[in-house]
Design a protein around this nucleic acid. Sequence first.
DNA 1: CATTGTGTTGAACGATCGTTCTAAACTTGG
DNA 2: CCAAGTTTAGAACGATCGTTCAACACAATG
Lengths: 193, 193
Amino acid sequence: MPWEKQFDVDGALTKAMNAFWARGYEATSMQDLVDCMGINRGSVYATFGNKRSLFIQALRHYDGLHRRTWVEGLCRSRGPKDAILAAFEEAIAAALGTGGRDGCLLVNTALELSPHDREICHIVAEGQTEMETFFAHKIAEGQGRGDIPETVDAGETACALLSLFIGLRVLARSRPEPPLLHAVARQAKALLE
Amino acid sequence: MPWEKQFDVDGALTKAMNAFWARGYEATSMQDLVDCMGINRGSVYATFGNKRSLFIQALRHYDGLHRRTWVEGLCRSRGPKDAILAAFEEAIAAALGTGGRDGCLLVNTALELSPHDREICHIVAEGQTEMETFFAHKIAEGQGRGDIPETVDAGETACALLSLFIGLRVLARSRPEPPLLHAVARQAKALLE
DNA sequence: CATTGTGTTGAACGATCGTTCTAAACTTGG
DNA sequence: CCAAGTTTAGAACGATCGTTCAACACAATG
């Protein structure tokens, strides 16, 4: 039984993810992917299947690597209310930072592919739903501590925060103006008071 | 001096707009456009230039035909506060209706092309800014009538409404669930109280 | 009616698309 | 050291991409 893979599969998937992230699914060609992944054409197909399959793996990779660990990081050494506010602040920082303008791969995919591909739509919807429940749980937790008033409806406000958050990532891609983005974050905070 | 055009230029542009609206820029081929516009390949190029130029014209067409007249319609026979609420209600109705799932061409374009094309980004940003000022003006108007409390900050709230509205259109494409969408609309209303 | 110039038509262009395949390079088990 | 089995490398596939072109159809002008 011969030979393990010579390249770093996870690293290659990360590079593919970044390419899809920056340019979207349709605008990223297999040639682009072969170039940026640094491995051979045949190896891409042997390892990841076809383009759609590679994209789905990259999307799941993003969902696990970025979103989930990011959300966990938000909670570490922060109270529930601050975790919510930090989500907005960090999204703004990412949009205005040097790497910026790429927004969120899940949001980008929600618009480009969700209406046309059931499996991809499911992954996107799942990620969005998890963000919604993250907000809802943190609100409930904050209410338990007395950080957030009981008059706030956790479920409804979570929907609003999700929508605000997604809107923020869209605006970050087309109007990366600090005053605008910070205004959105302040209004998110206002929903919790 | 010979011969005017034999086809309806405006109608053809509308058909192209619908194709881009449903599938996005990259996923819509010139062949798709030629088919759905009902005119010949050469006529498309002679009349609209290349693909990008056609898209830009379609985008401006959308911005004028749909968004602007839609906003005007919202204001007709409605008070300022109701006009804002109607914007959300109509967006939900469009998403859940039979034609639905296409969302808003400006929002779709904001994600797909804004970071990569300055001119397109400018059109998108302009449309978004006009929506923002629409919200801001209606809030101020509502405050003048006493429909909206003075404690509401018109500028900041307009940003939040814009972000909520955009988020709603994204969610409509990936999670067209009535309870979720209506929750967002209710929270938009709550921002005005 | 001939001329003029634009509109229409469909074939055709080279480039690139996603994908497959053949052959060489190589590590491991016998 | 040989045979087995995988990963490489890169050429090549047919299809489709966006775009151009030459030939033809037509209405207005002289």
